[in-house]
Design a binder for these strands. Structure first.
Lengths: 194, 194
DNA sequence: GTCTATACTTCGATAGAC
DNA sequence: GTCTATCGAAGTATAGAC
């Protein structure tokens, strides 16, 4: 027995504006700032519209996450297929906005079950995707995949980029230059200078 | 002119109970669940006591953060002074509870300025501390600190441990075993098997 | 198909009695 | 050191008018 409540269409311009507002708020002030009232105010709309288009706040978060996830998967595919895939992956994962949003969703997932499941399934899909494309690339570079398995390299790269971005946002930068230099040296060894 | 409002003493048992309750809530449901009413309910006390002891919620968060930070600094000092400092650091940074709390505070910092400043200054202190203790250790092991500067090693280790813990909490584990194996091999090389 | 009016809950914080 | 009483602001969500 589904609810009789009506819901706004997916291609509504108002709906997109609400998602844009929610994303901006999340980046600037964290997920807790994403409330129906504040999202609406940011988009110059009435708070009730949020519930018309998304019913609950969880639905809004899910819609926002999916919109970004789709784009990320496509961009990653392009990165892996590019002439210098390791550099492309590194550039992609050190982008401020995307990673900051991901971190915010991860924090949110800690206490919203519906969101946690969605993020987990996306993350597995994301990594499996990488895991399939990377082995031939590393072998082609002559990297010893026993000493450094493709998945380990991925976890290392994404870990470092995420923490660097996170700390940057806080204003903590000690050790960053040294770490980036180590990564750069590794990348240059196989794919030439930046 | 400071307010005339009274404030509870720092060594009060009630005050500690409130901090314990706040910490538990933060770990279980995220910082957004840490409200004066819920903290009090969890500690079986009246909500107004929160304001008596901490005045504002920001003050409560700061007190909670400082309590943990002090303990962390002391534990890190012991780890660095132990016979196998790298292993001790790794064990320390892969502990679930501490890292989860840190993540939650980092997310919180996004929209509470007072907290962001406190966390940033603590993080810098924490890393400077490590930066002073580590160089002689690495040189003693014969590690080439040009190829791998001490601070870079620290950023690498803490990045990996944080992301592993974070993903574990989400239920994402692809690549974790491979990554841990790489770290273990590195640690074993200089400080023997676990 | 789109928005308004409105109900109800929870929040942080204070004043003042005990 | 703790409790009663209470404010105003902000939160989610639904019913129904246009």
């Amino acid at each position: 027995m589904a609810s009789m409540r009506r819901i706004g269409s997916e291609d509504s311009k108002t709906r997109s504006a609400l998602l844009d507002a929610a994303q901006a708020l999340m980046l600037e002030e964290g997920y807790a700032a994403v409330t129906s009232r504040r999202v609406a105010a940011r988009a110059d709309l009435k708070p009730q519209l949020v519930h018309y288009y998304f019913r609950t706040m969880d639905d809004l978060f899910l819609a926002l996450f999916r919109r970004g996830a789709e784009r990320n998967l496509q961009r990653q595919e392009r990165a892996l297929a590019s002439p210098r895939p390791l550099r492309a992956l590194w550039a992609f994962s050190t982008e401020q906005a995307g990673t900051a949003l991901t971190m915010e969703f991860t924090a949110l997932a800690n206490h919203r079950k519906a969101i946690r499941e969605e993020i987990a399934s996306y993350a597995e899909r994301f990594r499996r995707h990488q895991a399939e494309a990377l082995p031939p690339i590393l072998e082609n570079y002559g990297i010893d995949t026993d000493a450094l398995p493709p998945l380990a390299l991925l976890v290392l790269m994404t870990s470092v980029s995420q923490v660097l971005i996170l700390e940057d946002a806080l204003g903590v930068t000690a050790g960053h230059d040294e770490t980036i230099a180590v990564v750069e040296r590794f990348l240059s060894r196989y794919e030439g200078d930046a």
